[in-house]
Design a protein around this nucleic acid. Structure first.
Length: 616
DNA sequence: CTAGGGTTAG
């Protein structure tokens, strides 16, 4: 037990109060104080109350009650109470103590500490109204020149997404210190002004570890993972020491890029430099391995971790679901509950997905129902979307539709999209038309709605309707989102977009694409290819084969990786039917293991088959 | 006697 020593000025009694101090122990200490007469010393008693509040948020109620017996609590006492409540489950109660300061009969007046804590309470409860009132009081009392309060205000407005206010506060600081500079960099990166963030970062006269971490995290959060890793390299070149917090953002960037080798390097770095394996860092590692396709390693890290929180469990459960290991996913969920970790709304999304990928409909439904019944979590749009998917993938289309009808809120595009996807798999034209109509009503330019509908028509050879859909798409200007696939070769991530010819080795890639095409055709596979997008001409189909980003990436993998090295692709969209078919064939003809992570899940291709068994 | 900036799961 790490005890926090709270010494009372020159008094022999030392309080040992921390998060594990029980109520009974507190009462014993309280009695000790009574015996020693400290209770009559208002200043010391105020400190006692404060020390409980600060070190034992669980017993906040106790210090609240004690405070009522405090005859003349000091500003220190009140400040401590505000600070303690700020991070508790009842942050709004901070304001009660502010009120007691300003209405105090002992002529107390708030100081810079008071406002610093109050500002953080506002950030905590995300109340812009409260934040602006506190800001006014800060100005009124003249604490806007205090650097702690300044950074606090930037932090608060950043938490609420008021970037303009962040800038206003920052611009009025004559000489912002390192902390304020970092706060504004972080705020800009968090809310889309990442270029400005970088500019401010570059202009900083001194940059410490936290400043670097803030900028790296900013890139990672914007999805600019490549830039995050580049900056991390620069940071190392400049000789700035890395710690466990900065490593989390680095791992997060690796995760999004699917850069397994860089992630492995980061893991080795962590162990070699003995960075503290915090829960957060461990969770980031698990997520990295899981989303880069190495689920075994993810499980290994998971088993080695001592403390596991809801993030940790959810990461591993989600990883198993994404990799199609539904049963294992449910096993871990049950272990999580046994370990006494309470699942939250995110956990349930992964659990129901896990059921969905292996067709465990009844289990999935039970978990969905248990959300509200057992855990008091109201299912949100996402959960209903998962439920529709659960029924839909299993071919139980009527129940999927019922799930949509049962939604207490307006069904979102995700719900209809899940239904439409199911209609495509099970070739239900009628319901598919309904789903795509609803989808288009919600999102007029939803590319998927048109593509899937036309797939249904193409499957049932209704070419006229296929043409109609095509014309509507053209008329509405519906454009396909640009697909992007990434592949890591020798620790470097290469990105390919649709029809991307910009790679320095494109000549070889093009040659390989031709080779793929020839070998698929000679093996008689092309004839089996489902109608791509529309009833396009044979030549166009051939052309389409070379267009999609994952095919270019796979071709690059074939020319740049050794035969025994698996080809691992990360795609920003979902894999299309055609690419899925073609990749299965490539895995057989070229005798390669290919793993594709699309935005939904993993596909492990081997010997002409895919781990998803067409169930996606 | 109390404070500030960077981190994880959908």
């Amino acid at each position: 037990m790490s005890s926090l020593r709270c010494t009372i000025a020159k008094h022999p009694i030392i309080f040992l109060v921390d998060t594990s101090t029980t109520l009974n122990q507190l009462k014993q200490i309280h009695n000790q104080l009574l015996i020693n007469g400290i209770i009559n010393d208002p200043h010391l008693f105020g400190q006692f109350v404060a020390s409980i509040a600060l070190n034992n948020p669980i017993n906040l109620t106790y210090s609240n009650r004690l405070l009522d017996h405090c005859h003349n609590p000091t500003l220190f006492t009140f400040n401590s109470m505000i600070r303690a409540h700020c991070k508790s489950s009842t942050p709004h109660r901070s304001f009660e103590f502010y009120k007691r300061i300003i209405t105090s009969t002992h002529r107390l007046s708030p100081d810079n500490y008071t406002f610093n804590f109050l500002v953080r309470t506002c950030a905590q409860i995300l109340s812009l109204e409260a934040g602006m009132l506190v800001h006014c009081s800060v100005l009124k009392h003249g604490f806007d020149s205090d650097p702690h309060v300044q950074s606090g205000l930037i932090f608060m407005y950043a938490a609420m997404g008021c970037l303009d206010s962040c800038h206003k506060v920052f611009d009025q600081i004559p000489v912002p210190d390192l902390v304020c500079q970092t706060a504004i960099v972080s705020a800009c990166a968090k809310w889309g002004e990442v270029v400005l963030a970088r500019k401010l970062f570059d202009e900083m006269p001194v940059r410490d570890l936290i400043a670097w971490s803030a900028m790296i995290a900013g890139y990672a959060q914007c999805g600019l993972s490549r830039k995050a890793l580049d900056l991390f390299n620069l940071m190392q070149i400049e000789g700035v020491k890395v710690n466990e917090v900065s490593m989390v953002s680095v791992l997060s960037a690796c995760t999004h890029l699917g850069a397994l080798n860089q992630g492995r390097w980061a893991h080795a770095y962590i162990e070699k430099n003995r960075l503290k394996m915090t829960v957060t860092l461990g969770t980031a590692l698990i997520d990295m391995y899981a989303k880069c396709g190495d689920m075994n390693k993810a499980m290994e890290v998971f088993r080695c971790m001592g403390e596991k929180n809801v993030y940790t469990w959810t990461s591993v459960i989600n990883g198993l679901a994404m990799n199609g290991a539904g049963e294992k996913c449910l096993e871990l969920f049950s272990m999580m509950k046994q370990a006494g970790v309470r699942p939250n709304e995110v956990t349930f999304i992964s659990v129901i997905r896990g059921c969905s990928v292996v067709g465990l409909v009844e289990e999935g439904r039970e978990h969905f129902d248990s959300m509200r019944r057992v855990y008091g979590i109201e299912p949100q749009l996402e959960h209903y979307g998962c439920l529709v998917d659960l029924y839909g993938r299993a071919g139980r289309l009527d129940e999927a539709l019922n799930a949509i009808d049962d939604m207490p809120m307006k069904p979102h595009a995700g719900a209809w999209g899940a239904l439409l996807n199911a209609c495509t798999i099970y070739k239900n034209t009628e319901m598919g038309e309904l789903a795509s109509r609803k989808l288009v009503e919600l999102e007029a330019k939803n590319h998927g709605a048109y593509v899937l509908l036309s797939n249904i028509y193409a499957d049932s050879k209704e070419w006229d309707k296929v043409t109609d859909v095509r014309q509507v798409m053209k008329a509405k200007g519906v454009k396909k989102l640009p697909g992007c696939s990434a592949i890591e070769v020798d620790g470097e991530v290469h990105e390919f977009f649709v029809e991307d010819k910009s790679h320095p080795r494109y000549n070889e890639i093009e040659f390989m694409l031709g080779e793929i095409s020839r070998r698929l055709r000679s093996a008689g596979y092309v004839a089996n290819t489902k109608p791509v997008l529309f009833d396009i001409e044979e030549e166009e189909k051939e052309d389409a084969l070379c267009k999609h980003s994952e095919k270019i990436a796979i071709a690059f993998g074939l020319i740049s990786l050794k035969q025994n090295q698996p080809i691992r692709i990360v795609k920003n969209l979902r894999v299309c039917w055609d690419c899925h078919d073609v990749t299965m064939m490539i895995s057989k003809i070229f005798d390669r293991e290919i793993t594709v992570r699309d935005r939904n899940r993993f596909h492990h291709f081997k010997d002409g088959h895919c781990s998803c068994k067409g169930y996606w």
